[in-house]
């Protein structure tokens, strides 16, 4: 395997793809949204139970590529039990990390991202950024009460 592929499909990504965390249905969700990438057919549903400004529970479901599914899985781990304001802050940092044109700006917060830094491999492959970003945009739509998310 070439260096580029190892960079994209890091162990963390493959692990979350093979053993997804936070996958399933949340019957008592207070917020939910479904994100769809019409370009490739990736589809992610995010369900949240928010109580008193805190994400008590988060689940994802859907089908898509390894990048999209592991991004969703990692997201549930990062956001479970966090205040909504912290989650929104992380959403903003992820946006910068994945999409900032300036490499040094993108890397500014990398130390605070933990496992999520493994998603950074998509920066070299512009067509795959949406795959990593779809769960995050869907989360953002769910929090803001929009039912349909999209990445473009």
């Amino acid at each position: 395997m070439s260096w580029d592929l190892r960079d994209l499909y890091q162990e963390t990504i493959l692990d979350h793809q093979k053993h997804p965390r936070g996958k399933g249905n949340l019957p008592d969700a207070t917020h939910s949204a479904t994100g769809f990438n019409p370009l490739c057919g990736d589809k992610v549903t995010i369900q949240l139970r928010i109580n008193d400004g805190k994400i008590d529970e988060i689940r994802f479901d859907g089908e898509g590529c390894a990048i999209c599914m592991s991004s969703a899985s990692m997201m549930t781990v990062s956001l479970q039990g966090t205040p909504v304001s912290d989650a929104e802050d992380l959403f903003q940092r992820i946006q910068k990390f994945l999409t900032a044109n300036d490499e040094s700006a993108a890397m500014e917060d990398i130390d605070s991202l933990g496992d999520l830094a493994a998603l950074g491999g998509v920066r070299r492959l512009p067509v795959r950024i949406k795959c990593a970003n779809l769960p995050w945009h869907t989360f953002n739509s769910a929090v803001h009460g929009e039912q349909n998310a999209k990445t473009e």
Binding site: S2, L8, K18, C40, D42, A66, R128
Partner: peptide
């Protein structure tokens, strides 16, 4: 276990251009 999109990316790294999608 390998989504077509991931296949497309990996094949591309090997210089093999295929369409992945619907």
């Amino acid at each position: 276990n390998a989504h077509p999109h991931d296949l497309g990316t990996i094949l591309d790294q090997h210089g093999v251009a295929v369409r992945a999608g619907h």
